[in-house]
Amino acid sequence: MNPARRTVPPIVAAALAVAVVVAVALGPAGRDRSAAEASAGSVPSTALPPSPTAVVTPTAPTPDIPVRDATAPAAALAPAPVHLSLPTIDADLPVDPVGVAQDGQMEIPPLAERAGWYRFGPAPGSDRGSAVIAAHVDSDASGGTGPFVRLHELAQGDVAQVDLADGSTLSYRVDQVVSVPKTDVAWPDVFTRQGAPRLVLVTCGGTWQPAVRHYSNNVIAYLSPVGP
C-alpha cells in the first residue's frame, strides 16, 4: 500500500477503495495484528477521501498475508494417539489408528479393551476440528463388555488424558456426554474438521435391538483441551 496517499481525485476514489480492500486482504506482511486489536478500533489517523461506494477501509497496517515456501518438504504428520485414560471411570485403553469399514462406517478395533482413533480426521493436538476415538461397549472378540461401558458415567469436568506416539500427553476435560439415537446422530458434525479442537469419544448405548443386532443409541462424550 502507498502510505503517502492522502488526497485522491474523487473519480479514482472508488477504484482505490476496491484496491484498498484487496490491499488490506493481500497487503504486504506487516505487524502481526490480531483480530482483537483490529476490532478494538485502532481507527487509522489517515483518512481516505469520501468514496461513492460503501467500502471504506483503513490505511492502518495491513494484515499479514501468509507466505510460505511451497517447495519445502511437506510437514510431518501429527503424532497419533496411542493411549487413552479416563480415571474417573477407571478406563485405560490402548488406541489404534483405524479407518473406514467396507460398509462405510467407522472401523472399530474388535476387542472392546482397545479403542480406535479415526486416522482420516484430526489427531488429538490438532489446532482445529474433532479427534474421534471410539471403542466397543461390548464385543464378540472380547466376550463381554469393555471399559467404555462406563462412558455414559463421565461427568462434566472429568479429566481425560491422551498419550501420543511422540511421548507427549494431552489433557482434556469433559464438556458434555449425550446419548443419541443412531438415526439422529449428525456424523458430519461429530467428525468435523472445523471449529475449536476437541476430543470426541464414542461408544454404543441405549437399548439393545436384537432384530438389527445393534444398540439403539450412540453415547458421545465431547471434551475440550486443557491448556498447558
Binding site: V100, A101, D103, G104, Q105, M106, I108, Y118, G121, V132, A134, A135, H136, V137, D138, S139, D140, G144, T145, F148, V149, H152, S179, K182, V185, W187, P188, V190, F191, R193, V202, T203, C204, G205, G206, T207, W208, P210, R213, H214, Y215, S216, N218
Partner: peptide, 19 residues
C-alpha cells in the same frame, strides 16, 4: 469431507441401558 456413516460399537447387548 465425508464422515463415516456410523460408529458401530456394540455387538452383544450386555450393556443395555434401557428401561
Amino acid at each position: 469431507m465425508t464422515a463415516p456413516g456410523g460408529v458401530p460399537t456394540g455387538e452383544l447387548g450386555l450393556a443395555d441401558q434401557g428401561s
